[in-house]
Amino acid sequence: MNIFRFAGDMTHLISILVLLLKIYATKSCSGISLKTQELYALVFLTRYLDLFTDFISVYNTIMKLVFIASSLAVVCCMRMHRVVRRSYDKDLDTFRHYFLILASFVLALLVNEKFTFQEIFWAFSIYLEALAILPQLVLLQRSGNVDNLTGQYVFFLGAYRAFYILNWIYRYFTEQHFSRWIACVSGLVQTVLYADFFYYYFISWKNNAKMQLPA
């Protein structure tokens, strides 16, 4: 464990807590893509298949349970809660996310560390995580403005990826056998996807204006 990875896990956890805070505090999920949340829940469920078979550390197990529980909580809240679900931008959140699932699965069948059930689903979850933010970014683009908590949510998600890239660089130089090239390449793609959002987030923060994404 290094400070970059720990910081990455904490900002990842904060991003989910910010999301839960926004939904419970405002009793609204406007500006949040349900599809992105469903994709994230799928990412955690398919990545942590080894939750009960491989014990790595108490921290690792607890964080896996927290990520699975919180991502499912967001999806259930957005789908079930009678007040929250009314504020869901159903007609804006129209990204065909099934294509993302299919593309990630096909890629996982072709590119994986070992052609076993667990490894294929692990690679699938890595590829899907890189693409999962797309429906959310498209929704923000369409809704034009980004309210503070949603902007912070995407910001913390981006920070989590950036810390993980620092973690991989650190591990590359400190561990001789370290070779997580699938996660590294996919993580880089994911961070690039955030880059344009960060650009507009920074511009709006600098101008102290409400964040406007170009239509």
Binding site: R5, D54, I56, S57, K64, E113, N167, H177, F178, A183
Partner: peptide, 10 residues
């Protein structure tokens, strides 16, 4: 084995 070693991240 190698792939297991690399699964210590979340």
């Amino acid at each position: 084995d190698d792939s297991k070693v690399n699964k210590d991240e979340l």
